[in-house]
Nucleic acid binder design. Structure first.
Length: 502
RNA sequence: GGGUGGUUAGCUCAGCCGGUAGAGCAGCGGACUUUUAAUCCGUUGGUCGCGAGUUCGAAUCUCGCACCACCUACCA
């Protein structure tokens, strides 16, 4: 501590100035930010443990408690006051009366502000109206809050401020807290699911000399000591498969990916994925596993597999549909017959009507994919696996034995959004090298998202990757689904926003 | 990248047929020993996002810029 006065912030105004004056007065009384108060109780535990006890029971055998929290409501009435404290678990009312705490403490309490952090000792009782309350024998100011909280009834509603000052959002809006508590529970449930199945959780590099594992534009940075360019990873895929080569036959990683692309309600530059790989399994196994995972997580975190997303009922309990691109297009647009959808010329004509650009090099599969994306993808409300993606756009997936033009791959769509992507891995090093060469050519031709030729990955495959199935699930989008959140920013604590002047 | 809407007190919002800015909450002063969005009386607080223009006069009309939201495009 020093005696130097902190320069007032640029947005200092009357309320802050008044609170700062109270802080200065508190400093004159002694330590203004004490750290010797130890709580013994959390609000929610007390509410739960004493839910059934009437006041006569509580008064007969007084329960001594020590709680701490932020004061969100205060009702001053002459010689007795009520306040509402909030801690990480919930809220608890406190009662501060002259005959129990004395005039000095009562006067001090009256000057404390909403937002101040208090420590309270006392006993439990129940008020006339039946609310469990701590009757204070002592109240202390533990941290002065210099900035006023948002309006106590409406909380913070301004979207920008909710994102930029998430801490204020979390203080005042229980719905926001709930989303992030659920997010934590969802991630924990996923982690447990894989650990219980014998998977090893690993951490692979976030900085890659060659960005790989997905088609996306990377962020670039520079390592000074090595004097080399490094890329923030766009996916952990290639590293995880190297671990399978190394003998870790079931691995998963839950971590951030970074993609230097647009920002929207469904895209944040850094987002969280789980990727998992299991040797001696294929993509059909993954689809079964994915259904089991999503059902289990929803049941565990929400207590149900029937959920609502933005007004649409979604049933995670039923077996998920499994359709090829052509089958999905036909199902939602029956005027396209399956025979038509197998004709490249027909597809080109249909795409021309939707204004979608096509290239002479687009094969049947790519044309189907484009038509799917142009008007079917967003209609897949209920969980649907789209299987057999074209080999041309799946450079890391194993080609189908029955038809090498497509891969043993699926994408899972729910509410019209891609939630997961998985496939039987391409483990033939010569095929993989050829696919990388094709990608490298596309990159030279100007495709910014085409992949690099990754020689170390080919070398790993040359040691022998067992037949393996691998999948990625977008955690943010899954959390959006399970918390009924309309924007990815609602499920990321500190979403990326443009710079602002504080 | 394109379109639409928003930006007024610390917060939630009115005011927008151009005439010098309002409410509730919070704050400040006062009353009140079971309140709970406490109540009652009094009261402080504003570069109306920023910059230009039209006008005797702009929160209000016009143009530009910034940021936010939504839609759209892009994006495995």
């Amino acid at each position: 501590m020093t005696d130097t006065i902190t320069p007032p912030p640029l947005d200092e105004h009357q309320i802050i100035a008044e609170r700062r004056a109270k802080l200065t007065a508190a400093r004159a009384q002694g330590q203004a930010y004490p750290n010797d108060f130890r709580r013994t109780d959390l609000a929610a535990d007390l509410q739960r443990d004493h839910a059934d006890q009437q006041n006569d029971v509580l008064e007969a055998a007084p329960r001594a408690v020590r709680i701490a929290g932020r004061m969100l409501l205060k009702r001053v009435m002459g010689k007795a006051c009520f306040g509402t404290l909030q801690d990480m678990s919930g809220r608890m009312q406190i009662y501060v009366a002259l005959d129990l705490v004395g005039a000095e403490t009562l006067d001090a309490f009256k000057r404390w502000d909403l937002g101040d952090l208090l420590g309270v000792e006392g006993t439990l009782f129940r008020t006339k109206t039946g609310e469990l309350t701590v009757k204070a024998t002592s109240v202390r100011l533990l941290s002065k809050s210099l900035r006023p909280l948002p309006e106590k009834f409406h909380g913070l509603t301004d979207q920008e401020q909710k994102y930029r000052q998430r801490y204020v959002d979390l203080i005042t809006n229980p719905e926001s807290r709930d989303v992030f508590v659920k997010r934590s529970q969802i991630v924990q449930a996923i982690r447990t699911f894989f650990v219980q199945r014998g998977y090893l959780e690993v951490e692979t590099p976030m900085m890659h000399p060659i960005p790989g594992g997905a088609a996306a534009k990377p962020f670039v940075t520079h390592h000074n000591a090595l004097d080399m360019e490094l890329y923030l990873r766009i996916a952990p895929e290639l590293y995880l498969k190297k671990l399978v080569v190394g003998g870790f036959e079931k691995v998963f990683e839950i971590n951030r990916n970074f993609r230097n692309e647009g920002i929207s309600t469904r895209h944040n530059p850094e987002f969280t994925m789980i990727e998992f790989y299991e040797a001696y399994q294929d993509y059909n196994y993954l689809m079964d596993l994915t259904e089991e995972l999503l059902r289990g997580v929803a049941q565990q975190v929400l207590g149900t597999t029937s959920i609502t997303y933005q007004g649409n009922a979604i049933d995670l309990g039923k077996p998920f549909d499994r359709l090829t691109l052509a089958q999905a297009i036909h199902q939602y647009h029956p005027h396209h017959s399956l025979a038509d959808l197998a004709q490249p010329d027909y597809l080109r004509a249909a795409l021309a009507k939707t204004g979608t650009e096509t290239y002479p090099t687009d094969g049947l599969g790519v044309l189907q994919l484009k038509l799917f994306e142009a008007g079917t993808e967003d209609k897949l409300m209920q969980p649907t696996f789209i299987v057999a993606h074209p080999t041309d756009v799946s450079p890391l997936a194993r080609a189908s034995d029955a038809d090498p033009a497509v891969t043993d791959r699926f994408e899972l769509f729910i509410t019209g959004r891609e939630i997961a992507n998985g496939f039987s891995e391409l483990n033939d090093p010569e095929d993989q090298a050829a696919r990388f060469t094709a990608q490298a050519k596309a990159k030279e031709a100007g495709d910014e998202e085409a992949m690099f030729f990754d020689a170390d990955y080919i070398r790993a495959l040359e040691y022998g990757l067992p037949p393996t199935a691998g999948e990625g699930i977008g955690i943010d989008r899954l959390v959006m689904l399970l918390t009924d959140s309309p924007s990815i920013r609602d499920v990321i604590l500190f979403p990326q926003l443009r710079n602002s002047d504080v």
